[in-house]
Design a protein around this nucleic acid. Structure first.
Lengths: 214, 214
DNA sequence: GTCTATAGGACGATAGAC
DNA sequence: GTCTATCGTCCTATAGAC
């Protein structure tokens, strides 16, 4: 017995997934709606029934990514632990998300610095604003945690607004070199995330004393 | 008295500059040759006289970027200093290059994971191979320096091949957030580069002892 | 809701004037 | 060498059948 309340969002979700895969492969401008339809296993009629335009589709994929990110970030931020624990947890979560949802992650990376100056309707600009707000909210949370960590003497004094850039950049850059392999498991992904996060927190210069590095 | 040996390469150089600016703004697929011509202040006839296709033009911009990178990297690598000095010097040089040649840097970032599976001639594939070789050469130099640093006890034990990814990723990510400002000077850029490189080398976690962080 | 067919426009690349 | 004009192709988006 199919329930109709799910039918609409399911149709959209499948299209978003297919679009993410296609956009990941060829980029926004390089992907045609026909290519998305081919990934989806249908024709573009279906896509244009659910989405107003290619730009809207791309923006919705991007927003979906950012929403998932912010939810994960806020969950860790609200949880227990020191600022250092939270910082570590957030970075690990994000690294894992990138690996597990690579197509969506790649769309977010391309969307970040896409100037949609041309061909943006007021409605699309509203979605773009939403996306930017989600990103700013996430960055603000990180900045706040770093500030707390510095205050508590857990982190080096630094300019948190500047430091989050390379931190998040290093994670986003995973979309460039990380490729899922058949032998990948949640554990192996976790190990990779831990390695990266450990580097991002502790750097690479050897400590002068015997402080543990892990 | 104009010398003819320069005339050909000068025409190409101007076109490469204009193309880099246009590609930075709209990406490869989103940029038309007419747009490049407009930045150049001419018509596309001039471009097609010097370059066989849009793809060739993009690849030549990308190669130009990678050539500049590798030259800078090799100069520092061959110079004096400890592995830590060299690592620091290379990262600082790259960060500076990104800021000073932002359009070229952005093309390199887009080009890294562009699959030109379609519409690549054998000649273009040769250029692509050249570009990839330049990148691999640069990464190999960094890996070797990190290995030396670990051996000498200057750097933490780690997997160098894995660590160079976030390191270079953080620098490449500058193309996303860094925007040149009128008040920027070589000194202010150097300061920004130093801040980033210091973070990439030392991380952000406070040392347990009184070791200096700068 | 999803399909086919097509209008309408943009772009890569070339031909030929100058 | 650079420009103008244009051909052919591909793509977004819509109209209308089912």
């Amino acid at each position: 017995m199919k329930v109709s309340v799910r039918s609409k969002s399911d149709g959209r979700k499948e299209i978003l997934d297919a679009a993410a895969v296609a956009f990941m492969e060829y980029g926004f401008a390089g992907t045609s709606i026909d290519m998305v339809a081919e990934v989806l296993g249908s024709t573009k009629g279906k896509i244009y029934y659910h989405f107003k335009s290619k730009t809207s589709l791309f923006l919705d994929v991007h927003r979906e990514t950012m929403t998932t990110y912010i939810e994960a970030v806020e969950e860790v931020a609200k949880g227990p632990g020191t600022p250092l624990d939270k910082l570590s947890g957030i970075l690990t979560t994000l690294a894992t998300q990138v690996m597990e949802r690579l197509p969506y992650a790649k769309v977010a990376v391309e969307g970040v610095d896409m100037h949609m100056s041309r061909s943006t309707t007021p409605e699309q600009r509203a979605v773009l604003r939403e996306i930017i707000d989600l990103r700013d909210r996430g960055e603000a949370i990180l900045v706040r945690i770093i500030e707390d960590g510095i205050e508590q003497g857990l982190l080096r004094p630094c300019n948190p607004r500047l430091i989050v850039k390379p931190m998040l950049g290093a994670l986003n850059w995973m979309t460039v070199w990380y490729r899922p392999r058949p032998q990948d498991t949640p554990e192996s992904r976790k190990a990779l995330a831990d390695t990266l996060v450990n580097y991002l927190l502790n750097g690479i210069v050897a400590p002068a004393d015997g402080r543990a590095s892990a």
